[in-house]
Design a protein around this nucleic acid. Structure first.
Length: 326
DNA sequence: GAGAAGGAGAACA
DNA sequence: TGTTCTCCTTCTC
């Protein structure tokens, strides 16, 4: 446990997860593969039909739409960023043309970009898997997993609730549905849900291709001071504890730093910046839609007696401390 | 008013 | 049985 999934090892560990804040900031128009919004595009991700059809290009196009104006991206990749998409050609999956006149992408840097993009998409899904405690392959989902994924995706992209429309559907049934069927069940967000499911299916497909065997995400997200073995519960089959969940969020500052962050990592002191969001995430994780911070904090306080969490010496609101930080 | 603290009982694996 | 959820009251900031 705690090792990076095969096929991801060549990916830069730099965290550029699909952060909820990005999703929330940009809305669905940036995500869902551009299938919604005023500039609706008809691009719907599907796994490459042939090995020659590069997966990297597939994910790169996904990334293009995910972060079309992410200024930091250019700084992270020391090469020319992904080619600007022309306003037209909505039917085509954009392909990077490293030979294009004026392009400063050489083959090496292109590979760097491609591998990073693929890695980030997979890490993104991996994060959701861990938080929701579901497998990466939608085909394996139970109806309850499907509901979790729906709840998650709806929140991420501010879609209208569609859980009831997909009730009793397992992953296999879900995967077999066309975009039109998604739209019929959820007229307002069905296309987005379908696009996202497509991305998950593609990722699972690729994962299977690159690493024969079971798909399981037990990725390393280790940052000094905390070890995955004590935090990553999602692969153990054991129900996750709240304190583990909090550590998981703390380990993903790029994704959840707006909600919860370290004040003093060495001492294990952290602050819940957005109590409602943390409670909501916990509720999604535990399938408790009625979860709120009042209840979550009560659970945290139960840890006082157990010596897992305590209030710091200088007590502050929304600030807690892990008794054994390492 | 929001958060903290803690009692008490229920639910669940 | 242990853990977490839920509801509640009281107190503090």
């Amino acid at each position: 446990m705690g090792s990076a999934s095969p096929g991801l090892s060549d990916v830069s560990p730099g965290c550029l997860l699909l952060p909820p804040d990005v999703a929330l900031r940009t809305g669905v128009e940036k995500t869902a593969a551009g299938v919604v919004g005023p500039e609706k595009r008809e691009w719907s991700p599907s796994p490459p039909a042939t090995p020659e059809q590069g997966l990297s290009a597939f994910y790169l196009s996904y990334f293009n739409m995910l972060y079309p104006e992410d200024g930091n991206w250019g700084a992270k990749v020391p090469v020319a960023s992904v080619r600007e998409e022309p306003p037209e050609e909505p039917e085509q999956c954009p392909v990077i043309d490293s030979q294009a006149p004026g392009s400063s992408l050489d083959e090496h840097s292109l590979e760097q970009v491609q591998s990073m993009v693929v890695g980030e998409v997979l890490k993104d899904i991996e994060t959701a898997c861990k938080l929701l405690n579901i497998t990466a392959d939608p085909g394996d989902w139970s109806p309850s997993n499907v509901q979790k994924w729906l709840l998650w995706t709806e929140h991420q992209y501010r879609l209208p609730p569609a859980g009831k429309a997909f009730q009793e559907l397992g992953g296999k049934e879900l995967c077999a549905m066309s975009e039109e069927q998604f739209r019929q069940r959820s007229p307002l967000g069905g296309d987005v849900l379908h696009a996202h499911l497509d991305i998950w299916k593609s990722a699972a497909w690729m994962k299977e291709r690159t690493s024969p065997g079971a798909i399981h995400y037990c990725a390393s997200s280790s940052e000094e001071g905390w070890t995955d073995s004590e935090v990553d519960s999602s692969c153990s089959g054991q129900p996750i504890h709240l304190w583990q969940f909090l550590k998981e969020l703390l380990l993903k500052p790029h994704s959840y730093g707006r909600f919860i962050r370290w004040l003093n990592k060495e001492k294990g002191i952290f602050k819940i910046e957005d109590s409602a969001q943390v409670a909501r995430l916990w509720g999604v994780r535990k399938n408790r839609p009625a979860m709120n911070y009042d209840k979550l904090s009560r659970s945290i306080r139960q840890y006082y007696k157990k010596g897992i969490i305590r209030k710091p010496d200088i007590s502050q609101r929304l600030v807690y401390q892990f008794v054994h930080p390492v």
